[in-house]
Design a binder for these strands. Structure first.
Length: 267
DNA sequence: CGAACGACCTGCAGGC
DNA sequence: TGCCTGCAGGTCGTTC
């Protein structure tokens, strides 16, 4: 479900909704997620203060004096804020209760999401191999060009590889490649320097614009108050039938994922 | 080492 | 109406 703009939206909304940094307790409702929820988290999150909440790639990180909580939304993970009285819904998995009795509740239909505790976040197996942040200066054409020259995969797989650059998923990969007029199934070795420059620019642009619109809601995605993201109306290629040029948009499968492109506009 | 692919899960739409 | 297939914002672990 969520790519960088959606995770950023949720992360910002959590920060805004939290009125106290004091956690009372952590409650496991259904431990079964991508990895079973570690029961120790309950002890670790009893009466502790949050120091910082931030995003790294597609992960939401709660930082404490004694470690960090690492949350991934998978495909269908949803975070909600509740008041005292609440019934457990289908697919609820855990909740964080705050001192003022507000509750952050995690719901995940497909159970691809996860939650981990890490004493040292940089050592965590999910975090330590992550690539550069796409909106940082570390993500530039020289970086992506250098990597691409020694790899033998299609360019879409390069930009979706979280060890290279984080946060880009299936939607924004198609969008960015369309914006820079590059076919998603083009071998990454064959891109020109101008291609790389354009691609980096497009990625930054589409992510920034989507963050401003509150992310993209195709089906499941919603922010914590249940509101959708409005970037869907701005998609240029993903899930569409016709390109602006009038040609039918092609939908091919690359590594098992739907990939949209226009054979007229993208070379 | 890099690349390809299956596996994990539920719900929904479409075809017969 | 019901059954079956395929598809969905992800990515780790295994195999070649």
């Amino acid at each position: 479900m969520p790519e960088l703009p959606e995770v950023e939206t949720v992360c910002n909304a959590i920060r805004k909704s939290i009125k106290t940094n004091k956690i009372k307790e952590f409650v496991i409702i259904n431990p079964k997620l991508r990895w079973n929820i570690d029961a120790n988290i309950k002890k670790l999150l009893s009466k502790v203060d949050i120091r910082k909440i931030y995003r790294r790639g597609k992960y939401i990180i709660f930082n404490f004096n004694h470690g960090s909580l690492i949350i991934h939304l998978g495909m269908t993970g949803i975070v909600k804020f509740l008041k005292n009285r609440h019934k457990v819904n289908k697919h609820d998995h855990y909740e964080i209760k705050f001192q003022d009795n507000t509750i952050l509740r995690y719901n995940d239909v497909r159970k691809f999401g996860s939650i981990h505790w890490a004493e040292n976040i940089e050592d965590n197996f999910l975090i330590k191999n992550l690539g550069v942040e796409p909106l940082s200066d570390n993500f530039n054409y020289e970086y992506i060009k250098k990597i691409s020259k020694k790899r033998n995969v299609v360019i879409k797989n390069i930009i979706m590889d979280q060890r290279i650059v984080v946060g880009i998923g299936n939607i924004y990969a198609s969008e960015a490649l369309y914006m820079s007029k590059i076919k998603p199934n083009k071998n990454c070795k064959l891109l020109s320097t101008d291609n790389f420059k354009s691609l980096v620019k497009s990625i930054k642009k589409v992510l920034q614009k989507s963050i401003k619109a509150g992310g993209t809601s195709i089906k499941d995605f919603q922010s914590i108050d249940g509101s959708p993201g409005y970037f869907k109306q701005k998609l240029l290629i993903y899930g569409l039938e016709k390109c602006a040029c009038g040609k039918n948009i092609k939908n091919i499968r690359i590594s098992g994922r739907s990939s949209f492109y226009c054979s007229n506009c993208q070379k």
